[in-house]
Design a protein around this nucleic acid. Sequence first.
DNA 1: ATATAGAATTGTAGCGCTACAAAAATTTGT
DNA 2: ACAAATTTTTGTAGCGCTACAATTCTATAT
Lengths: 322, 322
Amino acid sequence: MQDIAEAAGVSPMTVSNCFRYPDRVRAKTREAVMKVAAELGYVPNMSAGLLAAGTSRVIGAVLPSIRNSSFYRYVAGLRQAATAEGHELITMIAETPEEEFSAVQTLLGLRVAGIALVAGPHAPELRQLLELSGTAVVESWGGDKAIGRGVSYDVGAASRALTRHLIAQGRRRIGFVQVSGGGGHRYTMRLPAFRQEMFAAGLSDSLVLTVRAADGFGSGAQILNEFLALEPKLDAILCPTDVVAAGAVFECQRRGLEVPGDIAVAGWGDYDIGRQLSPSLTTIAPFSDEIGQGAVSILLGDAPPSEGPLLTPYALEIRESA
Amino acid sequence: MQDIAEAAGVSPMTVSNCFRYPDRVRAKTREAVMKVAAELGYVPNMSAGLLAAGTSRVIGAVLPSIRNSSFYRYVAGLRQAATAEGHELITMIAETPEEEFSAVQTLLGLRVAGIALVAGPHAPELRQLLELSGTAVVESWGGDKAIGRGVSYDVGAASRALTRHLIAQGRRRIGFVQVSGGGGHRYTMRLPAFRQEMFAAGLSDSLVLTVRAADGFGSGAQILNEFLALEPKLDAILCPTDVVAAGAVFECQRRGLEVPGDIAVAGWGDYDIGRQLSPSLTTIAPFSDEIGQGAVSILLGDAPPSEGPLLTPYALEIRESA
DNA sequence: ATATAGAATTGTAGCGCTACAAAAATTTGT
DNA sequence: ACAAATTTTTGTAGCGCTACAATTCTATAT
């Protein structure tokens, strides 16, 4: 900074102001300083700045995986909102609770302005660590017991809406696919809602299959086969993701079953593949980018401060498959 | 730190050593300090540490997108190697050259130990900024003109191998799909290699179609149709990614064309979908995790120092589709 | 019991920056 | 032209930590 100041003929303090509070410096001076800085390749040391000022302009997000594209829109929303508020977003990938804990420690070490978590299994000490740190935290897809505050759409309502839609279409033997491992927590609200609606319609709510993880087409095929072994007259299935639903549709085609003629297949998540597929998938669109935006607004303290999670919209996308 | 030191009855310096050089502290002392730190939720301020020590244990990676899963294995490799070397990995997503430039500025501001870029269009000032900064840089999938040093498999050799394979299978009218926009640079080596082999075999190398971006199934279908309009006797196509290839396969099925009977379809990248699909896709497996590991080894200075890019392995995966 | 090598622990100074208040320069009003 | 109001610029002190050297403690040999 000293070098830039000398080269530009101003004091170090003016250089600092140019980067941190451009408005406080006259345009002419600022341009001269910025020019010299660009020539010398000077980028302010954020660490020193953070240390001196005590506040950071970086938000950290921990993602459970980038194995599939499900977090693309979420991250886009985070990034867009962070940028709009003059912050930067850094992400860390953590596939296990232990890795997540370690990622949070790193983010805390960096003294980021806020941390965006994704709901799922967490290390038991995580909540306490974050509370003691005093860092702003938000848990996306989190509900009432979220670490920090939750941001999510109403998963239960979405699940009920989708179930009701299938029933309204005349489906009677509806199978539900439950996810246990991995990001299981993000799915837990769906089953009770499904059961509730099925019960209310006087239908059997016991056609439930549990799969470990919801990754890939393979599980879709497997699920379909298991369901058909369980209930040959199955006329609809509710899949945990569009990817699994796509796998199920492929398997239907292989077996000569018509979708939606013989079996209705519903997905979840409004993935690209669901739009491209023929038949296109009926699904729940979670507008994950709004979850990301909501998360940032909470972290930066400009969200409406109310009890419980911040609710974002969702939509039932009725397409060809169900 | 002061608080921890007092609570544990040691000097601040010992607390510092516990976190930074655990071996320098007697096990008993260390445990006592760590226990207090855990209770109080103390996490060392990396910024202050960096400022004082002048070195960081964080590596930054800039990813062009997480829209599809293609970087999953790459990031896994980066992460694994970084962790093995006692470093942390943070990632930034940047979808345009401008965003990438800004991401690099942030990483530079954080004074990370090294920056891993992905080959593609860069902002013109990026190279100079990084050179002036003196930060270690590596460009994954980068070649001779990489910013910093390149790490990549031999894309040209892979393209030649795949082309030769198709020719050896008796294919004569082979279409090649070229990508222009987006991460185009990562694809540029493929076409010349394709042409070379086609020419060497006395075949026409002019069945080339250019698409803007290689995202999604939709483009696969479109490409197939355009190719067939161009050359009805087409007997093979080389797609830029497995996803596009899958889209082409779907379209073949829709049109009643047999794969590989009527048309051979080759993908690239060894994506999950290529293994799951029926017919499974013949593809190039790039072992992206090794690219990630190589990138970290270069950044941390323990890669064999030679001229040109660090070469990682690749494999021609011959499966059902070609 | 004492000397000595080695391990463990501890002060000191300073990393690069910014908050804050004070000083200097500029603009505005009369 | 001069004072007052406003804008722009500038020192000073200190953020939390670690390198390094100096000091204290522990284990071993004589």
